[in-house]
Simulated scan of single mutants.
Amino acid sequence: MSKYLLNKFLFTVDRDPELVERYRADPRGTVEWWEDTYANRILGCHAGESSTWLGFDEAEREALGSHDYPRLFEMGAHPFLTLTLFIAMFERDHPPMGFQTEYARRVAHVQLPYPDIAT
């Protein structure tokens, strides 16, 4: 498992409104496309700079592909990154502060100390 890659996915998708909508509409397809296209790009470098070894494991693919943000939190994805991305995708489906309340309810089972979010 790579918390770095999980957080990189959340970070890059959240910063592109078209990717947010793509991920909302087709999560599994977006995860597969992103992994093939962006996973090995080095952040801050041009497209020609890349590595070759990064990829999601099956548990990560499943959690990302099913929008399972409680599982992502349990896996150590950064809670701020999960919250901001999922707010962008699902806030419109809830009353004001409704999604934030739902997020808190669904991750309430995670007790202190929270999962390690260091990458």
Rank of each mutant, 00 (worst) to 15 (best):
F99V: 01
A104F: 03
D93R: 04
E102I: 00
H94Y: 02
H46N: 10
L54C: 12
M97E: 13
G55I: 00
V110N: 05
W53G: 06
C45K: 14
G48W: 00
L83C: 05
I117H: 00
V107S: 12
E60M: 14
H94S: 02
T101A: 13
E102G: 07
T101M: 12
Y69A: 10
E58W: 00
R92G: 12
F90S: 13
M75A: 05
F56C: 14
G65P: 00
Q100N: 07
C45P: 06
T82S: 10
D116E: 15
G76D: 11
L64W: 00
I117M: 04
E60N: 12
A47Y: 09
P115L: 03
D57N: 08
I87F: 03
L81G: 10
P79W: 05
H94A: 01
D68H: 07
T84C: 12
G48Q: 01
R61V: 14
R61Q: 15
E102D: 13
S50H: 10
G48S: 07
M97R: 02
S66P: 04
D68I: 00
D93P: 04
E49P: 03
F56G: 12
L81T: 04
R92P: 01
S51K: 13
Y114D: 09
A104T: 11
V107D: 09
A108G: 04
G98L: 07
Y103I: 00
Q100R: 07
T82Q: 11
E58D: 15
R106D: 14
A118L: 12
S50D: 02
G76Q: 08
Y69L: 07
P95N: 06
L83G: 07
F99R: 06
R92D: 08
G44V: 02
D68E: 11
P115R: 05
Y114G: 08
R92H: 02
A104Q: 13
E74R: 09
A108T: 04
P95T: 04
D93A: 08
E60R: 06
M97D: 14
G65S: 03
H94I: 00
S50Q: 14
A88V: 01
H78G: 01
L112A: 14
S50E: 10
C45I: 03
P115M: 05
L72K: 09
G98D: 06
V107C: 12
R61G: 14
Q111Y: 03
G44M: 10
I117N: 01
P79Y: 05
E49A: 11
D93H: 05
D116Q: 14
L81V: 02
P70A: 11
P79K: 11
R105N: 15
E74K: 07
P79A: 05
Q111K: 14
S50P: 07
I117R: 05
S66T: 14
Q100H: 05
G65Y: 05
R71T: 04
L64R: 07
T52S: 11
I87V: 15
G48E: 06
A63M: 08
G44F: 08
F99D: 06
L64P: 06
R105Y: 07
Y103Q: 06
H78V: 02
L112I: 07
L83E: 15
E58V: 10
H94R: 06
A63R: 08
S50A: 14
A77N: 08
